[in-house]
Design a protein around this nucleic acid. Structure first.
Lengths: 122, 122
DNA sequence: GCTGTAGTTAACAGTTAAGTTAATTAACCA
DNA sequence: TGGTTAATTAACTTAACTGTTAACTACAGC
């Protein structure tokens, strides 16, 4: 697993880490601030590891202030992941079946004009 | 890992599986159709397993036709994941810093009216 | 019934992930 | 200097993930 997209999705595939990101929406927080809701369920080193995963995925950044390590959200890290998923939007939007049928009719008439924006993503 | 969101993100955290989803955007495909691009790198049972992951995550559905198992995309499975990520959109959109500053001014004036749509997501 | 094709299941091996406890680093404070 | 707080690192365990090969199920067609 080397590619950025995999790292992003992998980092998001854990409820603890997602909860941490949600907490960080409200602004910076130290490691122990972030740990607080989880210390019944896991140790502080476990929290450190989760934060490292988020940091490596580019979803948060840590700085230093005395003995604290304030963490802040880096939302840009989510952009590529959302962009990737957006290509499926039409597959979950309402009345897709009817929409697709309509599109088939249209593309049949305009023979291939609908081959727009091939981004070559994977 | 029990929750749907974790399953979805986890399923997406693999380039092989993402490539399979991309292939399925073009329409139904059998297991061996889907396997074709990967058989240099992995065996057919490995492909089966990837498809099982996607199926359990609700991202694809398998049917039966003679000895084939046509797979089709189930884009609705991505909806919740995208919705979750959308809450961070403002964090990656351009000039966020200035936007945030502006919002702070606004909410300071309207004292609390900006507390909209608390979806209780995690 | 036999043979080929499509796909899954079983059993196993290697790697990574996620947690633990104990020890360590680093800064503050008195 | 010594104690406290904040956080990380080290070493280890366990479980899950990803892949393998070999065996099996199921259907098609002669």
């Amino acid at each position: 697993m080397v590619d950025t997209l995999s790292q992003t999705f992998s980092a998001l595939a854990d409820p603890t880490r997602r909860a941490m990101l949600i907490r960080l929406k409200d602004g910076e927080a130290s490691v122990s601030d972030l740990a607080k809701p989880f210390l019944k369920d896991m140790s502080l080193p476990a929290v450190t590891k989760h934060l490292q995963v988020l940091e490596r995925a580019g979803l948060i950044a840590k700085s230093r202030a005395a003995q604290w390590r304030p963490c802040r959200l880096k939302g840009e890290g989510l952009k590529d992941a959302v962009d990737w998923m957006e290509q499926y939007r039409k597959f979950w939007e309402e009345r897709f079946d009817r929409l697709e049928e309509y599109l088939k009719t249209v593309t049949a008439k305009t023979k291939g004009k609908g081959k727009k924006h091939g981004k070559g993503q994977q």
